[in-house]
Design a protein around this nucleic acid. Sequence first.
DNA 1: CGCGGCCTTGAGCCCTATCAAGGCAAGTGG
DNA 2: CCACTTGCCTTGATAGGGCTCAAGGCCGCG
Lengths: 243, 243
Amino acid sequence: MPRSSKPSSADIRIRATRGWPREHGEEAPDLALTGSEKAELGRVAQIIDFRTVGSEIFSQGGDAAFTYLLADGVVRIYHTLRSGERQILAFHWPGDLFGLADHGKYVNSGENIASSRVYRFQIRKLERFLLKNPNIQDAFLVKAVYDLRNAQRQLIVMGRFNISRRLAVFLVDCSAHEHYFDQSKQILTLPMSRYDIADYLGTSAETVTRALTRLEGEGMLHRVTARDIKLQLNQLKAFIDFD
Amino acid sequence: MPRSSKPSSADIRIRATRGWPREHGEEAPDLALTGSEKAELGRVAQIIDFRTVGSEIFSQGGDAAFTYLLADGVVRIYHTLRSGERQILAFHWPGDLFGLADHGKYVNSGENIASSRVYRFQIRKLERFLLKNPNIQDAFLVKAVYDLRNAQRQLIVMGRFNISRRLAVFLVDCSAHEHYFDQSKQILTLPMSRYDIADYLGTSAETVTRALTRLEGEGMLHRVTARDIKLQLNQLKAFIDFD
DNA sequence: CGCGGCCTTGAGCCCTATCAAGGCAAGTGG
DNA sequence: CCACTTGCCTTGATAGGGCTCAAGGCCGCG
């Protein structure tokens, strides 16, 4: 059951770089918004808490009233085909914007896969607001371009990598998010299931498991538990051999 | 050999919708920019002609000085991996913006695959210009989001469709561009090779041919010549069964 | 302690990649 | 005007990666 509360602009952040993520597996920094810009943005926002995992934040085909900014937690964005197949298009982490719409309808669905806190902006209000605040509008543009680069990167991964490499890329990407990666132990705690990973990588849950087994056999990782995975980042990055 | 000339803002257009392409296979309309906005935008642009097919407009890893807007022709955007494999990320048609960069370097390469005319904007100038022209900046934001939706759509296609369906989607998408699709004869004239299509769909040229053979066998299309293909759009769309 | 969801492993098959070779069309030079 | 070249397209044979169906194991929770 989501609860909404008054906005506190304190921790408004939009995560993006003005370019391709630098060192692969490094978290992108926040865009530079001044305190007063954050405060203004906070004024057009509501905060909503999603405590229970797996609640729908918005739904494919539903009326698109809001654009969302994740403050805390992890969100999966997915599209469902008529056949019932599901493609996960992105996992979103704190500082990400989401809620693409078309002609007033959401194009995808969004669900939190960990207890989450989101800001939401009424789309019409936000549009007017951005037109009056070119610096903030610029931040949104930079973020959109950043997401576009990421989507293109994923297209490369899907188009040219086998499942093992796709998985390796995915794990390294996840390791960029401090909250889920214990730097000292090098242990990644996955917030999503094998099915989620499979639907993101364009494969099946079984194949994800098998790819994990293979990577483990190669000594690139070690499954402490199903969701806690010790990574050998250097080996994984060498294996990925991106670019 | 590209030739540059003075900008004439007459035909500046940015093709995008504020949402997911409506009827699949319909060309997106231009964003509403006033005549004076187009004129202002034209003032910060140069026009360049690329007569010979296959010239490089910009190159992965090269210093990113410009953002490009296609006035005429078709452009392929691709990324080359260390292994030499190539993934085509997009084909661009008139009204499209391209030239993503990171930290001053282009992330991908761009080449024209048909005689093309492009506007180019010096990136620094463009950024300053957009900050002073919120309506135009808004158009760029809408365009970026439009491209993001398209990239996500392609992710669905790559993640969940077999090659025949990917190809069908591709052909229907191409048929949206009047200049290459003879409405009365229902004949699509492909400006790109089988290799280009393969590298876009994440497969091989042989498999593209085989998929064409299969679709032709099903009566969904007919190869008049290798590049001229008569489409049965209704059947193809039914076969795609998107959403 | 038993249940249910998630994860893992196995067997068989199919789609697609790869390697190889031949066909076709356009352009070139004699 | 015709042989030759070259790039692109098509078809065939074969192998293998990944999907699907099936079943068993593990863990957290009631």
